[in-house]
Amino acid sequence: MRAVDIQNKSGMQYIHLSFSEEIEKVLKRYPCEVTSRIHSLEISLNVDGLPLFKSSSLSMWPVLCSIHLEPVIVFPVTLTLGSQRPLDLTFLEDAVTEIKQLLESGLTFDGRIIEVKLSCIVCDAPAKAMVKNTKSFSAYYGCDRCEQKGFWEGRMTYQEVDGFEVRTDHSFRAQTQPEHHKGRTPLTELPIDMAGQIPIDYMHQACLGVMKKLLTIWTRGEKGRSRQTMISIGQVDVVSARLIDLQQCIPSCFARKPRSLRHLERWKATELRQFLVYTGKLVLSGSLGSPLVLQQLPCLMCESSICLIELKRDVFKYCLYERITIMYLL
């Protein structure tokens, strides 16, 4: 047991752990033959809220770090506790100061200096807006990737695909579009690309977003379009039966087995990702016959291609794969 210094920052109870000491502790958990070959170390950061109890508003907002070695180990750098989200970004300052020093001077480990590189800062959309001190993703100027003004159509949409200004690291730091910003963020002290190294939240936008939206439209229809975008109840049952049949074929590296579309509202992000990248192309064969359903098919293909390219970076191979998949589904 050790004593820790508990402070009050950002309206929360706050504990900061020495960044370099925590990395050293983690590196010692790897075999010597692995750490002896390390000359450069990549790390990633994560900031997110964590509710502790269903019956209470008490929550934690930790700053987590992961080291890009196999297996990946995640450890806390800063811990905050309170009944609300942080009131400001002062809880990030100590972590940012230490990370900046590590990036500049490197990490002393086992009698040698290891270069440290910050790969990315990963947050979901609400947390990302908070730590970047920008408007929410649902605001008119909330887009992380461009400077166009959003259009309200039941929800905020960014419809322009040509002729808009792309948001860059320089434009973010200079705050050339003040409508996007709420103030300054400590993260600008780090030598990172504020537009490119804080990526879009894949889990919420791709899996729980686009994939779930498409499945909901196909199985329950789309508002204002009657049944034109739906597949039949019989086809839903066929797809569900195929998913259940695949349960015995799913290896243990997958966290969950496929479930029926009848339980779609309770599907987790891992199930939606599995459907998107792996099982969906098998079970949908012969079921997407409506013209409007086929119009939505490119969304699924595009999203799947991005996921696969991120996994293997073999663009030509997976573009060919998607072309064959479209022919198979039709």
Rank of each mutant, 00 (worst) to 15 (best):
Y14C: 00
E22G: 05
H16E: 02
T219A: 10
M194S: 02
S20T: 03
Y202N: 12
K212V: 12
M12N: 00
E70C: 08
A125S: 14
E165P: 03
I43H: 00
M230V: 09
L69A: 12
P258H: 03
K25N: 13
G150I: 01
R29T: 14
Q13I: 02
P178L: 15
R112M: 02
L41M: 04
S252A: 09
F19I: 05
C146D: 09
T185H: 07
W152E: 12
I73W: 06
R85P: 03
D237I: 10
W267M: 01
Y321C: 10
K117W: 09
F75K: 02
Y318V: 06
I231D: 02
V277W: 06
K117V: 12
D94Q: 07
P186L: 05
L308W: 07
R85K: 15
C299A: 11
P191E: 14
V74W: 06
P199V: 08
T270L: 05
E189N: 11
E104Q: 11
R313A: 12
A195K: 02
S240N: 03
L69N: 10
K212P: 12
K281L: 10
R323T: 11
G280N: 03
S66K: 07
Q205M: 09
R313F: 13
T157A: 04
E24K: 14
F53V: 06
V239N: 00
L261F: 11
P31I: 09
E33S: 13
G154T: 13
S240H: 04
I15M: 08
I244V: 09
G234I: 09
Y318N: 03
Q247E: 15
V293W: 08
V293G: 07
F75L: 08
E265Q: 15
R145A: 07
L311H: 10
Q296C: 14
G163F: 15
G209M: 05
L215E: 07
I250S: 01
S83M: 14
L329T: 04
P258E: 04
Q197P: 13
S232Q: 09
V26H: 02
S304K: 06
K54Q: 09
M130W: 00
L208S: 04
S305V: 07
I244E: 11
E93C: 07
H170T: 15
E179P: 02
V166S: 10
I6F: 08
D169V: 02
L50G: 06
A127E: 04
D88V: 00
V63L: 15
S136E: 11
P71Q: 08
L282P: 00
R256C: 05
G49A: 09
Q177C: 10
D162V: 12
G221F: 06
S105W: 08
Q274M: 12
L107D: 04
L284M: 14
C249N: 13
Q148V: 01
T134F: 01
H39F: 15
I6K: 03
I15G: 00
P86S: 11
Q296M: 15
D5M: 12
C143T: 05
Q177N: 11
I250T: 01
